[in-house]
Design a protein around this nucleic acid. Structure first.
Length: 935
RNA sequence: GCGCGCUUAGCUCAGUGGUAGAGCACAUCCUUCACACGGAUGGGGUCGCAGGUUCGAACCCUGCAGCGCGCACCA
């Protein structure tokens, strides 16, 4: 055993062990292993991301699960990787290029140029977060690192797209979508966040064309869209307006085109809201679009994609941003004297999650997906086959699945998986064999035909649609998931769809696309489905739900058995971590300052199950202190010398003190409690158990008690026994602590020689049985009672010392009147723990006058310091104690005197109360005697 | 509007029906040969409010309030 420094310095230790683990291949997963499989796929961080505390929490949990599983005998695969994160990454790189003055607009580089720049960026910065994760000590199998734009991965995405298309789950359509005017792309519903906004409600009046005396008042929050209005709607049941249906009003804007637009009746209109008259702008509102469909209304789009008003908005508004246009339009209405009022109004507005600007409902041609395997995905959680922790998220999941909407999967971006669809327009019938086969009688016009190209060994899926009924012109759509197929299409004049797929359309394949799908690889066979998924509830719909559906659709099985949802990390005031607030500490700084183990333990200790975590640096400091304490406990063991008891096996109890037996019993209890807490993924409970055991029981009690056996004149056999127990307990404690604090435990394991040279703690099997297996329970129980009594008594004596105003370092002499013959053999330990000069055991001791004392579980203990005692203080203390005991008696007796209690409460509860009365009565008697002695 | 969660010591949180707990912070004492990143002792709580169930409620039920989250959304 080596010497240890007085304080633990984590820096070098952590680096060294991580390098050793990597070198020894400790993290690599072998699909051929005979051990049962355990797997986790990492939630892939954004490739341009840097490590933040959310990652620390999430990956520490995964590492704990992975390391524990390894020790429990599983072949563990933790698969790491990164996500290309379409919008976020393209935005980041574009912004950066603009900042550097390389481009002003993405078009300056063009598609290929920009994508090339993003790849350069990815190569340069893409690995940062992975390197940072390594500093945290995570045990991912780095040889399996994947990226969602790897060639193999792309092939999976394309294959899935083609497959869904063939199944009729994917379609293209002109729909109202959520348009981000900043990123210039469509978004899914999940990427829109509703935010309460303060704006104005504008009330303006319009004249009925057929009845010039009648004016209608319309309330709107968006007057800039008036030029796009193609009707006004009223509820047909609304008596105020029903008679006007079919007539027209004059649209006030644009000034140069004050068209007459119809008044239509539509049930959608709520006559309680506003004036009960709704302006209908089919191009810029989802509900309005639907009204437009019902009444065959014209669609007038008055906005450019970037949110600037276009020519159709009229000469006064064109060129203005939508928000400036709003003010201008309101001003114009006012000038026309049709603006009746504007009043402050709060409403919810959808914002683009990424760009944080209000989204614009916009009619555009997009690809949509009807989700596959919905029923199976719903059932697997509802039935409990897949478990959510905490399980309340199952309800949220269920609700979303119940109301599931088609997914807009196309994005008008360049960074991502390009949609594997090619088109050729206005083809006329000719001798093209492909076309002829599509135009087969069984597949008239729109059928899906798969064609295999022998020369390229690739499959292409075609559909054809007539440009006009009975015309000879056809539009062809072709899909392929192969490079050869793509090449064939390109060379035959087909053009690929310019859009890319939503990032999540690749992420949802993560659990199997990373394992070699569609081949039936050994990895898939061994490690799919994965065991645990650890993620945040914020991506429950984005990712988790979709992975479940994808898992069933292509693997025929669920992708993971358990999902653990972490909380959000907030600052001490409960605010979200954000760059602008500057309240987000850099994990690497924390690691440098306190060590990775300290960060891991600290964050886990303050992470309540299923709740947000309020982070404070002091928790990491506590982790550091804990590590240091552990270090010193081992250091103390080393200082005692003697052979270390390596290896497992049950503990011989010959000559072992009650204190040693007690700590061994508590260790076995700890092992059981930990197992139960792991079953519930209750990490704060686990850290609590470990902390209490080590600090409270092992250090504060056992280690101090053990010092009796290490005194120069102590019995060598006793010393050996205590050391034996110390080693057995510390050995297992290191095993239990290892998943949380891998580096320091590995270092101590080596230093203490607990394992054979060249082996690692991280590869140690978790012992299945307790160290006291087979030991007489009565023996253990007696030891525990005695040890507890000594610890309790020591505390009372220390308290007595302080009451008598004796400083901690003052020695004082005591007399102990023992409660039984077992006390004398442990009295030396009690003396040590109580910091007494002498502690004389005298069964027949009779206290004299003016003698301070205390009642303990070992017996009455008196202080032999007559004249120096602050009698008043001791009296006050004893009186207070007696009062408390009397109150307890009153409480217990009150219960016992109730007949309903004695009749209805369980017998053991009643008995317990009787016992309490007896115990406290005895205590009161003793305290009274002590008080009498005082005067 | 619907749903979910939270409310316990100054702070962060444990505590699923039977004696209210921990860590930190605070106060006092102690550098005693594992650790001052430490030890010892102590003070501190009508368990958000109001009802109900029960012999007994921090815990179960109902209502209310405050905070947070999710879904939906009316121009």
């Amino acid at each position: 055993m080596a010497e240890l420094s007085k304080a633990y310095a984590p820096g070098e230790v952590e680096e060294t062990w991580y390098a050793r683990w990597l070198e020894a291949g400790c993290f690599s997963a072998d699909p051929a292993s005979a051990r049962p499989g355990y797997s986790i796929v990492i939630p892939p961080p954004n490739v341009t991301g840097i490590l933040h505390l959310g990652h620390v929490l999430n990956n520490t949990i995964q590492d704990i699960l992975a390391r524990r599983a390894r020790m429990k005998g599983f072949e563990v695969m933790w698969l790491p990787g990164t996500d290309h994160a379409g919008i976020a990454t393209q935005n980041t790189v574009e912004k950066n290029l603009k900042k550097q003055g390389i481009i002003k607009h993405r078009d300056d580089l063009g598609r290929e140029g920009l994508v090339e720049k993003i790849w350069e960026w990815k190569e340069k910065y893409g690995g940062i977060i992975i390197q940072q994760l390594k500093q945290l000590g995570v045990s991912c199998d780095w040889s399996r690192e994947r990226f969602t734009l790897d060639p193999d991965y792309t092939r999976c995405v394309q294959r899935v797209f083609v497959d869904l298309y063939k199944k009729g789950q994917i379609y293209r359509g002109k729909r109202m979508v959520n348009w981000c005017p900043a990123s210039l792309t469509a978004l899914s519903d999940e990427e829109v966040i509703m935010k309460p906004q303060k704006g104005f409600m504008y009330y303006f009046k319009v004249q009925v064309v057929e009845d010039p005396d009648t004016w209608l008042t319309i309330a709107t929050t968006r007057p800039e869209t008036i030029p796009g209005d193609t009707a006004v709607a009223v509820n047909p049941k609304d008596e105020r307006y029903a008679h006007l249906i079919g007539k027209h009003i004059r649209r006030p804007l644009p000034l140069e085109n004050q068209a007459a637009i119809p008044i239509v009746g539509d049930e959608h209109v709520d006559f309680e809201f506003g004036t009960g008259v709704l302006k209908v702008t089919p191009a810029h509102d989802k509900a309005d679009f639907e009204i437009g469909q019902r009444h065959q209304l014209e669609v007038i789009d008055v906005l450019h994609p970037n949110g600037v008003l276009n020519d159709l908005a009229g000469k006064d508004l064109t060129g203005l941003d939508r928000f400036d246009g709003r003010k201008k339009a309101a001003a114009m209405l006012k000038e026309m004297e049709v603006l009746e009022k504007e009043e402050p109004h709060s409403n919810n507005v959808g914002f683009s999650e990424r760009a944080d600007v209000p989204i614009e409902p916009r009619l555009s041609e997009q690809w949509f997906l009807k989700y596959p395997s919905v029923d199976k995905a719903k059932a697997v959680v509802a039935s409990g086959e897949m478990k959510f922790y905490p399980d309340r998220w199952a309800k949220v999941y269920d609700h979303w699945m119940e109301n599931i909407q088609d997914w807009c999967i196309s994005r008008q971006l360049w960074w991502g998986h390009r949609i594997p669809v090619w088109t050729k327009k206005s083809l006329t019938i000719n001798s093209d064999e492909v076309f002829l086969s599509i135009h087969h009688p069984d597949n008239p016009q729109t059928g899906v035909v798969t064609y295999n190209f022998p020369e390229t060994n690739s499959e292409i899926v075609f559909t054809a649609s007539a440009v006009h009924p009975r015309s000879d012109e056809w539009d062809l759509t072709a899909l392929t998931d192969s490079k050869d197929g793509a090449a064939w299409l390109e060379s035959h004049g087909f053009t690929q769809d310019p859009d890319v797929l939503d990032t999540w359309f690749s992420s949802w394949l993560w659990p199997f696309a990373t394992m070699g799908w569609p081949e039936e690889t050994p990895t898939l066979k061994k490690f799919y489905p994965t065991t645990d998924l650890v993620t945040g509830p914020d991506i429950l719909f984005f990712w988790v739900a979709r992975m479940i559906m994808a898992g069933y659709e292509w693997m025929g099985e669920l992708p993971f058995k358990n999902v653990y949802f972490t909380g959000l990390i907030r600052d001490k005031q409960g605010r979200k971590m954000s760059k602008s607030l500057g309240n987000s500490p850099d994990p690497l700084d924390l690691i440098a300052k306190f060590g990775a183990d300290a960060l891991r333990f600290g964050i886990m200790r303050s992470a309540p199950l299923g709740l947000d975590l309020k982070f404070d640096e002091s928790s990491v400091e506590e982790g550091r202190n804990f590590a240091n304490k552990l270090w010193n406990a081992c250091r103390y063991r080393i200082m005692q010398g003697g052979e270390v008891q390596a290896g497992e096996g049950s503990l011989s109890t010959d000559g072992v003190s009650v204190f040693a037996l007690d700590i061994a019993a508590k260790l076995d209890q700890l092992s059981r409690d930990l197992e139960a807490a792991y079953q519930e993924y209750s990490f704060s409970q686990i850290t609590g158990l470990l902390y209490d055991f080590f600090w409270g029981n092992y250090c504060d009690r056992f280690l101090e008690a053990a010092k009796t056996d290490f005194a120069p004149d102590a019995d060598p056999a006793k010393k050996a026994g205590t050391l034996r127990v110390m080693d057995a307990v510390m050995r297992r404690l290191l095993i239990h602590l290892h998943p949380f604090m891998p580096h320091i435990t590995e270092e101590l394991w080596r230093t203490m020689d607990y394992g054979a040279e060249g082996t690692f703690l991280m590869q140690q099997p978790m012992p299945a049985t307790g160290v006291l297996e087979g030991v007489d329970p009565a023996l253990i129980s007696a030891a525990q009672t005695q040890a507890a009594a000594v610890y309790e008594s020591a505390s009372r004596v220390r308290n007595l010392k302080i009451m008598c105003d004796l400083a901690s370092n003052r020695t004082a002499d005591f007399i102990l009147k023992p409660v039984g013959p077992w006390v004398a053999p442990v009295s030396e330990t009690l003396r040590l723990l109580a910091q007494a000069g002498t502690l004389t055991v005298e069964p027949d001791f009779k206290a004299g006058k003016g003698m301070a004392g205390t009642v303990t579980d070992c017996g009455e203990i008196f202080l032999l310091l007559g004249g120096l005692v602050d009698v008043d203080a001791v009296r006050a203390r004893l009186t207070q104690e007696r009062k408390k005991a009397e109150e307890e008696i009153v409480k217990a007796q009150a219960k016992l005197s109730s007949e309903t209690f004695t009749a209805r409460a369980p017998a053991e509860v009643v008995e317990e109360h009787r016992q309490r009365v007896t115990d406290f009565t005895a205590r009161v008697a003793q305290l009274t005697e002590l008080l009498n002695n005082l005067t």
